[in-house]
Design a binder for these strands. Structure first.
Lengths: 199, 199
DNA sequence: CTATACATACATACTGGTCGGTATGTTTAT
DNA sequence: ATAAACATACCGACCAGTATGTATGTATAG
């Protein structure tokens, strides 16, 4: 980094930190590795972020939240049929995976598992993202009930919890098994469940 | 440890390592903390285990597998009605949780998330446990189909994948939310799904 | 000129792991 | 029976390496 473009430097650090964290976890993520990857010096890093912890927080607030929003929240906003939207969202998440990236799992869940018992700052930030995600599903289901697309007998909130849980669980299993097939098979049950919510 | 009881020393190390790992993850687990906790010296530890890695493997193979077997495998062996067995197994896992232990999540899933992309030894061991667990569910469902307790139209294997995924996902969400209610709500959908497998 | 952006060298704490040595127990030879 | 030989269990100081973080300096843009 010689170009003296602070915004670019910051973004480069964030992205490298995201990758390093996603591969090794936050605690084992090495600042030196991040610096090596970006060719940024330690002084520059500590100019942009006061500590490793704050760098991690920024990764969650900016990069991870951006990813979740794009993949799991925006696709559910203002859709005609929430059931179809959920199903195609799940299909896209399967199509996105291949044998090379399946092993990294869900960045949000990875960090959640590692850091939520240790650091309250991480936990709150991650929990907020889960809340937004789940709220998007809940709202969609409620609207679907109003539009006679979704059964009125089900609890939208409970269904949203279950859907998020099943997606995260399936991603976890597939990560551990290093298998897209495991992801597909695990999510098949979820898709069938979602079909039963249809009016 | 002055009592010169090698088996007791080994078990104490394993248990302390399990706790330390469950709270901090494997990489951040400190051998010195484990030694402090058990009052075992470093020499003694390295007498029993050749490396930190092998200590971690032993925790998985012995302690974690023991827990999973007791809570999730044995309860499904030789049962009259697999559907009822699954439902009460899930209920027990909810009852076991309280506001103090909910934040630790599932030890198996914790380790899986952290270590499976980094270390193949961990991944294989953890995957083996998941396999045993899933196999117990699959076998139960197949037997249930033979005994006309479970619908013959469903795929026992796919259902087993989905059930494990949903349980792990729900435990993860609850861990992050620090809430038994989140666990209960998330698993409610799973219980309803399991009911639909009944013939 | 001054604040911002970055560079370099260093401080400090902690990590897993090693190594020489000791204490206790068990086997074996006479 | 008993001394010698050996094995197991454990001790704790110490090592090299690495971690994050800091102190101080320089270059540059406005």
């Amino acid at each position: 980094m010689v170009d003296r473009d602070p915004d670019k430097t910051r973004q480069a650090l964030l992205f490298a930190a995201f990758t390093e964290i996603n591969q090794n976890g936050f605690q084992a993520a090495s600042l030196n590795n991040i610096l090596k990857e970006t060719a940024v010096t330690k002084g520059a890093l500590y100019h942009h972020f006061p500590s490793k912890l704050e760098l991690g927080y920024a990764v969650v607030d900016e990069l991870i939240w951006g990813n979740v929003k794009e993949s799991w929240v925006t696709p559910l906003i203002d859709v005609d049929n929430i059931i179809d939207a959920l199903l195609s969202m799940i299909d896209r998440s399967i199509e996105y995976r291949n044998e090379d990236n399946i092993c990294f799992g869900c960045p949000l869940n990875n960090l959640a598992q590692e850091m939520s018992p240790i650091d309250e700052g991480f936990r709150e930030r991650i929990n907020h993202i889960f809340d937004q995600w789940r709220a998007a599903i809940t709202d969609g289901l409620i609207e679907g009930q109003a539009n006679s697309i979704v059964k009125k007998t089900i609890s939208a909130e409970a269904s949203a919890y279950f859907i998020v849980a099943a997606i995260e669980g399936a991603t976890s299993l597939a990560k551990n098994a290093k298998s897209v097939d495991v992801l597909r098979t695990s999510l098949q049950g979820l898709k069938e469940h979602i079909q039963t919510l249809r009016k």
